[in-house]
Amino acid sequence: MKRRDSRSLASTFAGYFVLVFFALVFLYPFVIQVANSLKTEPDAAANALSPLPHPFTTGGYEKVFLNTDLPLWLGNSMLVTILVTAGRVLLCSMAGYALARVRFRGRKALFSAVIGVMAVPPVVLFVPKFLVLNQFGIYDSYTALVLPLIVDAAGVFMMKQFFESVPVSVEEAARIDGAGVWRTFWSVVLPMARPALITLTIISFQGSWNEFAHTLVAVQSPELFTLPRGIADLVSGSLGKGTQYPLKLGAAVLATIPVAVIFVVFQRYFVRGANEGAEKG
């Protein structure tokens, strides 16, 4: 018995060691990111590993706000994220509800189509999406940034799964009372769907805030750049490689903060979202 105790103590210790080591590996890059965004350029170049800026300066942030279009990118990112998130939550839950509950002709075929759509790798749609935006004459506009992203097959799938897990009885009561499909959906079903809606909101927010590839094929004017696009331009473009790290890292910090805050507050919904993703496979 004694031997087993000391063995499990040793393995607990080893477990903590591995966990702490990997926690460092996974989190220290963020420490480096924040710390170096607050350093001077020579300090960042000489002491990249150090978590303490010496001297401490907000010069990088001042430069990124004053010398780049970052305020514009931030504004565009917020606008696009809000529109895309609102659109996805509403449209995906409507479609998910209809696919789960409303008995209309062709819904099984439609659901198979949604599954099929989820299987198409987004990267493949790259050039094709540009072709369509160009053909419709909406290339290089806010519409091009928002409209193609406003619906997400995975979101439809997630909401359908959720609505199927809710007991029918409540809705049936509403329907018998004479409420139409829309009334039932809006005032009876949606309020019950709060956890799923929060999950979908968070996934959509995170997805559209971080979206980069779509902006490459949707817009080209610098006035329409979102934050990831602007940062990518900053890194690979005009300001050149290898220099201005505090400024670039500052921009990266600003792009990370909103998702980080939401992550800390709504962590369990993120976890749920990741596992919903697992179920769809």
Partner: peptide
């Protein structure tokens, strides 16, 4: 963000 994190790794 994949872009932000790529910047960090560049550094």
């Amino acid at each position: 963000s994949s872009v932000a994190i790529s910047v960090v790794f560049l550094f």
